[in-house]
């Protein structure tokens, strides 16, 4: 009996070992790249945020503890910029998330039907997604150009029969952030629309038929079938849009450099400009670490919400 059974566990070990060896071989290239170019830089970033280094000098690197983190909230000058950037991100997210999500859902419902024209519209709404941010910024810089020669100014002038005073959209403290918001929505909506479209098509048509038989009106169909059917999709879209909103960088860097008077500065822009432009690497790193944790926290919360709703 003993001789019969004892070899078996050994054999099993050998087999699992072979399988795990193949598994490891498959894993290694991807995981090594991810660890080297994502995980290590992240820890390096944490390390940088705890040390000070004068770039280009040979003063030795020195540990400064949480100095850069304290700076964010106590340094008289810097605190203002950081909080302003945080606020800008907040406003950006508070406007973009609901508007873009709502618009995307609305457009998805509009294009969720057949026909050549509808198909054309679907393409149109999605097209900006493939536009690099550099290009989007360029186009909108021209549209938003100051003076009567600017496209938007000229258009508004015509619409108001000449009563409109041309604005310096990107140079005005009150108009710069809304301008950035508008062009971001133009670029991003198509992406979310397609996700909603997939969500719509995931709603079984029998649900609609059942509601129709119950005598539901168009509005009831939307409220009682479509909206509940899109619940998880909506949560997902909101989550993704929020995360994107907190990472805004390119358009700010290209169009306004955070100006005027920090009216468009974003946290990510601040981090990069501190590290790269102002050579204040530790400070920039501290900001990115804080932002990463904010995003991590938000997605954990949203994941939790998603899970609860599903159960």
């Amino acid at each position: 009996m003993v001789t019969l059974t004892s070899p078996v566990p050994q054999r099993r070990r050998r087999k699992i070992w072979t399988e795990s060896r193949v598994g490891l071989t498959m894993l290694i290239p991807g995981i090594v790249l991810i660890v080297v170019f994502m995980l290590i830089p992240f820890f390096y970033s944490v390390w940088l945020s705890l040390h000070v280094e004068i770039v280009g000098s040979n003063i030795p690197i020195r540990s400064v503890g949480l100095l850069f983190y304290r700076h964010l909230f106590t340094d008289p000058i810097f605190r203002g910029i950081f909080l302003k950037s945080l606020e800008n991100n907040g406003i950006f997210a508070l406007v973009v998330v609901p508007v873009q999500t709502g618009l995307a859902m609305f457009l998805a419902i509009l294009v969720n039907r057949n026909g050549a024209f509808v198909k054309f519209c679907r393409t149109t709404f999605f097209l900006p997604v493939v536009f690099p941010m550099v290009l989007t910024s360029l186009i909108w810089k021209a549209i938003l150009a100051p003076g009567p020669a600017g496209m938007l100014n000229a258009a508004l002038r015509v619409v108001t029969f000449g009563h409109f005073t041309p604005q310096y959209w990107l140079g005005n403290v009150h108009l710069a952030l809304p301008s950035i918001i508008v062009l971001s929505i133009w670029q991003g909506t198509g992406f979310q629309m397609v996700i909603f479209l997939a969500g719509l098509q995931g709603i079984p048509s029998s649900h609609y038929e059942a509601a129709l038989i119950d005598g539901a009106s168009r509005w009831h169909l939307f409220r009682d079938v479509t909206l509940p059917g899109l619940r998880n999709t909506t949560i997902f879209v909101v989550m993704v849009t929020t995360i994107f909103s907190l990472q805004v960088f390119d358009q700010v860097y290209l169009l306004t450099q955070g100006g005027p008077l920090n009216a468009t500065s974003s946290v990510m822009y601040l981090a990069v400009s501190q590290a790269y432009v102002a050579n204040n690497v530790g400070q920039g790193a501290a900001i990115s670490v804080v932002l990463s944790f904010i995003i991590l926290l938000l997605s954990l919360i949203q994941r939790q919400v998603l899970r609860e709703r599903v159960d």
Binding site: L4, T5, V8, R12, K15, I16
Partner: peptide, 11 residues
């Protein structure tokens, strides 16, 4: 028997 699951005991 097919070999898709390991055999915990026996032959």
């Amino acid at each position: 028997v097919a070999g898709l699951e390991t055999i915990s005991d026996g032959e």
